[in-house]
Nucleic acid binder design. Structure first.
Lengths: 133, 133
DNA sequence: GGACATAAAATGCTCGGGCATGGTAGGGTC
DNA sequence: GACCCTACCATGCCCGAGCATTTTATGTCC
């Protein structure tokens, strides 16, 4: 019982939780990154961006404001901007001007983007379901 | 009931778990990185390395083999090597040759390293306990 | 209408991290 | 000993990410 109370201090529990998160994150993100990259030439952020874009497209006429998409991602503004640039060069995404506010840009997924996302989906889900059994 | 079963598909549960991990990781690591860096000039990996080194030191005469420490961290071999180099330049850590096997190196924490680790500890625990309430 | 503050996005800079490689040391086999 | 395979660590290279800054466009207050 002594040992139990020793390992049940708040400090220990907090450390263990963080340790779990670290382990899960590194394990899954490593495998995801590798699987998506080698299988479809996509990074994790690339895939997440396409995934969110695709979902939003269903609703709002296939386009979404850059800043709104950015708000849904775990990326800084600069990293997000460069990710969009990469995907645009790859032909997976299209920028479009916004008439109401010319500072803003719309973003739309192309048919190639949809196809690649569909192809990468099973890879993505396979890695996740392997870890979260 | 329809809605419930819809949100209880295996695919959805897995996605939600991964989403939770992503959120926790980015939130905590971001704040940890910032707090440790601005407060003590340490990155997360630097702190973790010192932390593990300090624990191992208690037992084994204040030194541990590089490769053994590396095995306990979420870093590639090259990133680990460079982290050690940074900490060594900062005077927080000391490399030492291993007589039995001259391929290996011992690693020891310096008194400055211990002091800084002690100083950074409260910062570290403060961030963690804020998130894992 | 001009000055100023603010918002969206792009870009220069730097840094940490991973992959591939190199360099050196051990341990085998012949 | 010569040869080869493997282990430990360092280094060259590239890439993604964050910070700070710049650019361009809105809105506002006078």
């Amino acid at each position: 019982m002594e040992a139990v109370s020793e390992f049940a201090t708040p400090e220990f529990r907090v450390d263990a939780q963080w340790s779990d998160v670290l382990h899960a994150y590194h394990s899954v993100s490593g495998q995801l990154e590798h699987a998506l990259q080698s299988g479809h030439g996509l990074g994790m952020s690339d895939f997440e961006l396409l995934k969110i874009l695709s979902k939003s497209c269903g609703k709002a006429k296939n386009k979404i404001l850059m800043k709104d998409l950015e708000a849904q991602m775990y990326l800084s503004q600069s990293a997000f901007s460069r990710t969009v640039t990469r995907l645009e060069k790859a032909g997976l995404v299209e920028r479009g001007a916004c008439d109401n506010d010319r500072r803003s840009n719309f973003l739309a997924i192309t048919s190639e983007g949809c196809d690649l996302l569909d192809a990468a989906g099973p890879t993505y889900r396979a890695v996740l379901s392997k870890h979260f059994a």
